[in-house]
């Protein structure tokens, strides 16, 4: 299995008085095989982004176990996951992902600048390779402000894949795209990760997008009111 989540629990609002329940993110079990494509689907505000943050090893959790690409994340001290995250996880956040002060090429190369997985001499080749893969090599010298929303998302996707991660987590990558661009973006993400043998997990609130994935998880009931901790 590429991703295994067991008995995950994160308290969001600890109760103030004894009678008041806490708001808790709970996920008893989630398993995603290596090299597969999975969609985590649920309405806006149901805790998908939070779950993605925890699965990426960025947001700490209170209980549970997460194993990503044979590596057990430290759920208490997220700083300890940084080296693994930079090496093995590709992340695309909801909203803005590009630095406006850098060109398209520089934005993609930024994914290699700090990850220390590629020798400096290969940055250019690898970044251009990824841009070509998403069909935007001709825009390498452009500024992000001159790109369409779909092109921006493709550049963001290229950056999240440039260091060849083993697991790719995409949070609402189609949120501001028209249906045709959204479908194209998903197809591109699936094809690119399939070629690389990577595991792709997409977090979305769009059932049509989730329907394109072979494995789907319902995240509607991630957040619950609970008496935890007693």
């Amino acid at each position: 299995m590429s991703i295994v989540v067991r008995f995950l629990r994160k308290i969001l609002h600890a109760r103030i008085s004894p009678g008041e329940p806490s708001l808790v993110l709970e996920l008893p079990s989630l398993e995603i095989p290596t090299g597969s494509f999975a969609a985590v689907m649920g309405p806006s505000g149901c805790g998908k982004s939070l779950l993605m943050g925890i699965m990426a090893g960025i947001i700490p959790a209170d209980e549970g176990e997460i194993v990503l690409a044979d590596h057990a994340l430290d759920l208490r001290q997220s700083a300890l996951n940084e080296a693994f995250r930079l090496r093995s996880i590709g992340i695309l956040l909801q909203g803005r992902n590009l630095l406006e002060s850098l060109t398209v090429f520089e934005n993609v190369a930024l994914g290699l600048r700090f990850s220390r997985t590629y020798p400096r001499l290969q940055w250019r080749t690898r970044s251009m390779e990824m841009l070509a893969r998403v069909g935007l090599a001709h825009l390498a010298r452009e500024w992000p402000s001159r790109l369409s929303p779909a092109q921006r998302q493709k550049v963001s996707l290229a950056r999240s894949l440039v260091h060849h991660p083993r697991v790719v987590l995409l949070d609402e990558p189609t949120a501001r795209l028209d249906p045709a661009s959204a479908a194209q973006m998903i197809q591109l993400a699936i094809e690119t990760t399939r070629e690389g043998g990577q595991t792709l997990v997409l977090f979305t609130d769009d059932p049509a997008i989730a329907g394109r994935f072979e494995t789907r998880f319902d995240a509607s009931h991630l957040l619950v009111r609970s008496d935890f901790p007693s």
Binding site: I91, L110, G111, R113, F114, S115
Partner: peptide, 13 residues
């Protein structure tokens, strides 16, 4: 702020 978040996310100290 957004740029610093992006830079931290890609591994900038």
């Amino acid at each position: 702020e957004e740029d610093w978040l992006q830079l931290r996310l890609v591994g900038a100290k």
